[in-house]
Design a protein around this nucleic acid. Structure first.
Lengths: 201, 201
DNA sequence: CTCGAATTCTATTGTGCTATAGAATCGCCA
DNA sequence: TGGCGATTCTATAGCACAATAGAATTCGAG
């Protein structure tokens, strides 16, 4: 899997760094942060363990990079959905679709499970990203309530957490349950949620 | 927290073992299995690190004990709910209430996050418990569908996973979100799920 | 073809952790 | 009280790991 003779422009530099972060994400996702060794990451890249320290000051810094890298793209896609002029129901569906998309699953899983092992300052930085994400979802829910599309007795905060919880659980189940395809799971989850939020008439 | 001069009958023996398992659960929940050292567990108990090996053959065995201990009680309570003659909706509510009950949270969190680090044979043994649990929930959902209480177009398997996912996410959020009390969260979750499953009329 | 920066390498240090061996202590019961 | 099993202790082996220092190599730009 080693990249042979990659051109070395500024783009090449960034790409190589992404590869390294990707390798860390893969290994952290599989073995957990503390269960993974820097040697494991180096093996994926086909380089020596010590060479990793050209890219990271420490193993913890690698974890932060994985968490940040993974979540930044996430936040961005979410904000695009939130800004669209779709109905609240459609937005909820799209949020679930994107949140539990099986691409970059390694990053998602590492973020979900391992971010708590970040040292204090790094955890705070990641937490800030997280809050933007949660608040964007909550605004969608509140929009749905205000517009009369959703039930007015919803607890917006709890509903947000439910949406996140469902999405996260989907990510966890891919790869563990062979009969669970993302399509089947997402269809069921979206259906469930939208029915639960909408006014019954 | 050290037990001073505990009487040593057969009951005392079992209780001491429970204390040791409880200490392991606490430490594994806090730091993760690989992030926790046997020294950490010994510190909680006020004994020496090596003394733990009187109770366990290995750290992995301790993890299995925590997972088993935690989940066995879980399965038992669930089966009692399943056998009751309550309606499917009531059962779903009770399952969520019990599943996300904040007692023995350490055991739950360790089971959710760390069981995947068990070595093959042990993981298989734990997986068997898990399947009993999932199947019991799925039977409740199917009962609700057959009786006409729930929508007939539900995907019972996905619905089961949704219920589990919601319950698990609740467990994860206790202690992370200060404004989330178990009561508030469970009320919202139960309301959401029951509305989503019931026939609308 | 050469210079220099980017990248990877070799070699090593020190630390922390699991697990084992065997000695010492504790507390119940005869 | 003395013995015995249950429990905890001291001491240490042995390994895996993160991280540093500095040398060697690679590759594109000029």
């Amino acid at each position: 899997m080693k990249a042979v003779a990659e051109p070395r422009g500024a783009a090449g530099v960034r790409r190589r760094l992404s590869e390294v972060i990707g390798a860390a994400a893969k290994v952290f996702a599989q073995r957990g942060y503390h269960g993974a060794s820097t040697q494991d990451i180096a093996d994926v890249l086909g380089i020596r363990q010590a060479s990793l320290y050209y890219y990271f000051d420490s193993k913890e810094a690698a974890l932060e990079a994985v968490c940040r890298d993974g979540h930044e793209a996430y936040v961005e896609r979410l904000l695009r959905i939130a800004r669209s002029d779709a109905s609240a129901s459609e937005k909820v569906a799209q949020v679930l679709l994107h949140h539990a998309a099986p691409e970059r699953l390694d990053f998602t899983l590492v973020f979900l499970r391992e971010r708590r092992f970040l040292p204090g300052p790094a955890r705070k930085r990641i937490r800030a990203l997280e809050l933007r994400y949660e608040r964007a979802i909550q605004r969608i829910v509140e929009q749905g309530i205000r517009s009369g599309e959703f039930r007015s007795d919803l607890d917006a905060r709890m509903t947000t957490l439910a949406l996140l919880g469902l999405g996260n659980s989907a990510a966890v189940w891919y790869g563990r349950e062979p009969d669970v395809t993302p399509e089947r799971m997402l269809r069921a989850y979206i259906d469930l949620l939208v029915r639960a939020l909408r006014l019954t008439h």
